[in-house]
Simulated scan of single mutants.
Amino acid sequence: MTPELREFLLEHGFPLDDPDAPGANGLTPLMRAAKLGRIELIDPLLAHGARVEVLNQDGCNALWLACYHGDPALVRKLVAVGAPIDQQNGNGASCLMYVSSNGKAELVEVLLELGADPTLKNFDDWTALDLAASPGCLRALRKLRP
């Protein structure tokens, strides 16, 4: 374990011996690092045994929290190490739906480039295109329509 990872775990109240232990708000160390944009901690956390498929109480994984933070490099990193890109949370919303509904056009484009499924529907039967909250998101998603 790197000194930086040890400091991060202790600072956020995580045990040193359980890389997937949920902390505040049900976030694991990997989720917390993603939410804070701490891309430099991703590899050390994975080497420590953190799993990218773990979900919090809302059905969100670390990729969701990376989308919340908004760093495209972090999103790319998590997808590259196997984070499920189309994980749907407890409301049936995917990361693509989340970034689209929050006007994060750059992340819409990144997720589409990485293979996110724009045809998924949430529990209200809405797709990311239906939820588009900005012209940039709308343009990115409309490019996919015939």
Score class of each variant (00 low, 15 high):
143 K>W: 04
38 R>M: 11
81 V>N: 12
34 A>G: 08
110 V>M: 07
140 A>P: 05
79 V>I: 15
61 N>Y: 10
126 W>I: 00
133 A>R: 02
51 R>V: 01
89 N>I: 07
144 L>N: 08
11 E>D: 12
64 W>L: 09
93 A>K: 14
119 T>Y: 08
33 A>G: 07
107 L>Y: 00
42 I>F: 07
13 G>C: 06
142 R>G: 14
76 R>N: 05
50 A>D: 10
27 L>I: 02
38 R>D: 04
21 A>H: 15
23 G>Y: 00
69 H>V: 00
4 E>C: 06
81 V>Y: 12
133 A>F: 05
36 L>G: 00
42 I>Q: 05
20 D>L: 09
57 Q>Y: 13
44 P>E: 09
122 N>C: 12
114 L>G: 00
139 R>E: 15
136 G>S: 05
140 A>D: 00
62 A>N: 02
125 D>V: 04
134 S>Y: 01
116 A>E: 01
57 Q>P: 13
102 N>W: 00
86 D>I: 06
49 G>K: 10
35 K>A: 05
89 N>H: 14
30 L>W: 04
113 E>Y: 08
90 G>P: 01
74 L>Q: 10
62 A>V: 02
101 S>A: 12
99 V>K: 02
8 F>L: 11
77 K>N: 14
39 I>D: 09
97 M>E: 03
5 L>N: 12
